[in-house]
């Protein structure tokens, strides 16, 4: 006796064109040249990395004239070690670290950044990290995130920052 059929798999295939906005495109060009840029809001002075093309707080449009460069190093403010859930299309198989990082010169963190070159059990809040460039810039550039130009982040060896420096930058 065979089991009764309870599920029939119906896979729907829809194609979407990924369009990067002019702001994201400019950011990507800068990343390919090894520069991490943001937009500084002319009203509140906050520096958004990656740039959005506007300040969501003041609702002011920003453009290249508001562009500032930030350092490719910063402070890890919080993190998680992910055990990847397996689903159709998932390529991640091994555990990995995802961290929020406050770059030097930026007002807010960049989220979900890979940190490598350190045992997972030694990753900690307040740890200083630096970018490891040389990734494939065509990977992961969907108009958000930091594009693939940075492979991942690794400890910079500088002393850890105290709690006051990172605890207001969980996100």
């Amino acid at each position: 006796m065979s089991e009764p059929v309870r599920f029939v798999s119906q896979k729907v295939d829809l194609d979407y064109k990924v369009v990067t906005s002019p702001v994201a495109r400019r950011f990507d060009e800068q990343m390919r040249a090894g520069r991490i840029t943001g937009h500084k809001c002319p009203e509140c002075g906050l520096v958004y990395v990656p740039p959005k093309g506007f300040c969501p707080i003041d609702c002011v449009i920003t453009d290249e004239s508001n562009e500032v460069e930030v350092r490719d190093a910063g402070t890890l403010t919080s993190f998680t070690v992910i055990t990847p859930i397996q689903y159709q299309g998932q390529e991640e198989k091994e555990e990995y670290v995802l961290a929020n990082i406050l770059l030097d010169g930026a007002s807010g963190t960049i989220g979900q950044q890979r940190v490598e070159g350190i045992p997972h059990s030694e990753v900690r809040m307040g740890m200083r990290v630096k970018a490891v460039w040389g990734g494939d810039p065509n990977e992961g550039s969907r108009g958000w995130g930091l594009t693939g130009a940075i492979k991942h982040w690794e400890p910079s060896g500088e002393p850890d920052e105290p709690k006051e420096k990172y605890q207001e930058h969980v996100l």
């Binding site: 403010t77 919080s78 993190f79 998680t80 992910i82 990847p84 859930i85 689903y87 299309g89 998932q90 390529e91 991640e92 995802l98 961290a99 929020n100 979900q112 809040m125 969907r142 709690k163 605890q167 969980v170 996100l171």
Partner: peptide
Amino acid sequence: GRSGSVGAGGYFAPHMRAYIDR
């Protein structure tokens, strides 16, 4: 539909870590 989706827990985990730390 892309690779690398971490699920809601992956997104919220750093916030929970911050709560524990604080």
